[in-house]
């Protein structure tokens, strides 16, 4: 509903929107800035904004103390693995729901979503026990499976909404052209749904990356991802602002950078495919 307005009005809009945007973004900006300060400057009164002695010391201290790369690799493995695994299972299911709907399709979809409402803490101990029994505790595989399961409903839902935008006639055309079901999904549906699939992939990667209940409770040392890495700074190291900031920046940087480069898909993904 954007409309033509005068430049004055536009300038006013710009000023207001930028101020609000910067206020919302400020905590992140402040964290990144603080990570380059010395501890003394980090808590100086009055606070220094840009004019301080920039240093990389905090980063090397954090890396030395907690082996950042290992946590990072765990995060990448778990978030990536759970997303890809989820997509492989969800694509056929979403195809079925979108193109061969039955009276129960909507119920199944809502049921799937409702499993996400089950309070994780309610089943924490059983999962913990099962994980011990199966030898999955503190393993990347175990966490990958759990995160895949908790995000599966969202993946199915998103793919379903994207698939539904694809006209069924095109898939029927493929069928008339002699394509088998496998070829129909491989050569026609998937390429057409690439933007939607990319959005789904990105959003679920982020959700898995940031997940902080199972990752904190099912890992100890070996498989702990960045959420656990940062939680270890909760106290008393939290009082060292510069180091806390450096660790925080290292934990969120991969996602922020990824978000910057794939803005369009992410914005689309963030609406969970639910709103056009």
């Amino acid at each position: 509903m954007a409309r033509a307005v005068t430049n004055n009005r536009k300038a006013l809009n710009t000023a207001i929107a930028w101020s609000i945007g910067l206020i919302i973004f400020f905590p992140i900006l402040w964290t990144i800035l603080t990570s380059f300060k010395t501890e003394a400057q980090a808590i100086s009164n009055p606070p220094v904004f840009l004019f301080f002695d920039w240093t990389l010391e905090n980063y090397s201290v954090v890396q030395e103390r907690s082996n950042y790369m290992r946590f990072l690799w765990n995060s990448v493995f778990i978030a990536g693995g759970s997303t890809v695994l989820g997509l492989i299972i969800a694509v056929p299911a979403a195809w079925s729901m979108a193109f061969v709907p039955s009276r129960r399709t909507k119920d199944i979809l809502l049921w799937m979503l409702s499993t996400k409402m089950l309070p994780a803490v309610g089943v924490l101990y059983p999962i913990y026990l099962l994980f011990i029994k199966l030898g999955l505790l503190d393993t990347r595989i175990g966490l990958t499976i759990v995160l895949m399961l908790i995000n599966l409903p969202i993946i199915v839902w998103m793919l379903y909404t994207y698939f539904r935008e694809i006209p069924g006639e095109i898939l029927e055309a493929a069928r008339m052209d002699g394509a088998s079901l496998k070829n129909e999904i491989l050569y026609v549906l998937t390429p057409m749904a690439v933007p939607g699939i990319a959005s789904t992939l990105l959003l679920n990667f982020i959700l898995a990356w940031n997940e902080a209940f199972w990752t904190l409770n099912l890992t100890a040392a070996k498989a702990a991802p960045l959420t656990a890495f940062i939680a270890s700074y909760s106290s008393p190291e939290g009082l060292f602002y510069a180091k806390l900031s450096a660790a925080s920046t290292m934990a969120i940087a991969p996602i922020l950078i990824m978000g910057w480069f794939s803005q369009k898909q992410l914005v689309r993904g963030l609406t969970f495919g639910a709103v056009k």
Binding site: I24, A212, L266
Partner: peptide, 19 residues
């Protein structure tokens, strides 16, 4: 501006709580 506004969503809850 849009990027600035959506950025907090990408921050993991443990980080934002700590910060």
């Amino acid at each position: 501006v849009r990027i600035l506004v959506i950025a907090p969503f990408f921050v993991m809850p443990t980080v934002s709580a700590l910060v």
